[in-house]
Each structure stands twice: as C-alpha cells, then as structure tokens.
Computed example of a mutant assay.
Amino acid sequence: MTEQPAGDPAADSRHARYGTLPERIRFEDMTEGTATGPGGAANASYNPESAWNFYSCLAVDLGL
C-alpha cells in the first residue's frame, strides 16, 4: 500500500498522533512454562474427609 496525500486534516492529525501499530508479539514470548511435581498441585492438597467444608447448604447452615 502506498501512502497518498490525504486532504483531511483530521486524518493527518490521527496519523501524526498514532502513527503505526506496534510490532507483533510472538506467542512464544507471551507464555512461560514451569515444571510441576508428580500428580500436580491440585491433587496434593485434597483431603476427602474435609471435602464437605467447601460446599454450602442452606439446611446445614440453619442447623436443620
């Protein structure tokens, strides 16, 4: 695309203010990989005996 002289002063001021778009960022530069332990962190803290503490029930809250 070649630039053509625009007679619109608003377009000239927009181009002077914003110019061009910033350069693209590669996906590899936006992500970061980390190593986890076996089983992951989510399973390591699971306790089946106290799992009911995380659920809300109105009947239990009212003591019924």
Results as ranks from 00 to 15, higher is better:
residue 63 G to R: 00
residue 35 A to P: 01
residue 30 M to K: 06
residue 64 L to Y: 06
residue 13 S to E: 15
residue 9 P to K: 05
residue 36 T to D: 09
residue 11 A to E: 10
residue 22 P to D: 06
residue 14 R to G: 13
residue 43 N to I: 07
residue 33 G to P: 04
residue 20 T to C: 11
residue 17 R to C: 00
residue 49 E to S: 00
residue 19 G to R: 02
residue 53 N to R: 13
residue 33 G to Q: 14
residue 59 A to N: 15
residue 4 Q to C: 08
residue 19 G to W: 01
residue 29 D to Q: 06
residue 41 A to N: 09
residue 4 Q to F: 11
residue 44 A to L: 12
residue 64 L to H: 09
residue 51 A to Y: 03
residue 8 D to I: 03
residue 50 S to K: 00
residue 42 A to F: 13
residue 15 H to L: 11
residue 52 W to G: 07
residue 40 G to D: 02
residue 44 A to W: 08
residue 26 R to V: 11
residue 56 S to D: 14
residue 54 F to E: 05
residue 16 A to M: 11
residue 62 L to D: 06
residue 22 P to A: 02
residue 26 R to Q: 08
residue 58 L to R: 15
residue 28 E to I: 14
residue 57 C to T: 15
residue 44 A to N: 05
residue 54 F to S: 00
residue 11 A to V: 12
residue 50 S to P: 01
residue 41 A to H: 10
residue 59 A to Q: 15
residue 8 D to M: 00
residue 21 L to Y: 03
residue 26 R to F: 09
residue 64 L to S: 04
residue 21 L to R: 07
residue 25 I to T: 14
residue 62 L to K: 02
residue 15 H to G: 05
residue 9 P to H: 05
residue 52 W to Q: 10
residue 59 A to V: 15
residue 53 N to H: 12
residue 24 R to S: 12
residue 62 L to A: 10
residue 55 Y to D: 12
residue 46 Y to E: 01
residue 54 F to N: 04
residue 4 Q to E: 14
residue 50 S to M: 11
residue 36 T to C: 07
residue 41 A to W: 13
residue 57 C to L: 09
residue 56 S to C: 15
residue 9 P to C: 07
residue 3 E to K: 15
residue 43 N to P: 03
residue 24 R to W: 14
residue 63 G to Y: 02
residue 1 M to R: 13
residue 60 V to W: 12
residue 47 N to L: 01
residue 30 M to D: 11
residue 42 A to P: 03
residue 43 N to H: 10
residue 22 P to C: 00
residue 8 D to K: 05
residue 42 A to Y: 08
residue 48 P to I: 03
residue 37 G to E: 15
residue 44 A to M: 09
residue 25 I to W: 03
residue 52 W to K: 09
residue 2 T to P: 11
residue 22 P to L: 02
residue 35 A to T: 10
residue 10 A to D: 09
residue 63 G to F: 03
residue 55 Y to N: 08
residue 55 Y to F: 12
residue 57 C to K: 13
residue 8 D to T: 05
residue 10 A to I: 11
residue 43 N to C: 02
residue 3 E to R: 13
residue 45 S to V: 06
residue 8 D to L: 07
residue 15 H to W: 09
residue 12 D to V: 10
residue 8 D to N: 10
residue 15 H to M: 12
residue 13 S to C: 10
residue 23 E to W: 03
residue 27 F to H: 06
residue 35 A to V: 14
residue 19 G to N: 00
residue 62 L to S: 01
residue 61 D to F: 13
residue 40 G to T: 06
residue 45 S to C: 02
residue 50 S to C: 04
residue 39 G to Y: 04
residue 62 L to Q: 05
residue 50 S to D: 00
residue 49 E to N: 06
residue 64 L to F: 06
residue 52 W to N: 06
residue 47 N to I: 01
residue 49 E to M: 09
residue 27 F to E: 04
residue 14 R to Q: 12
residue 51 A to C: 04
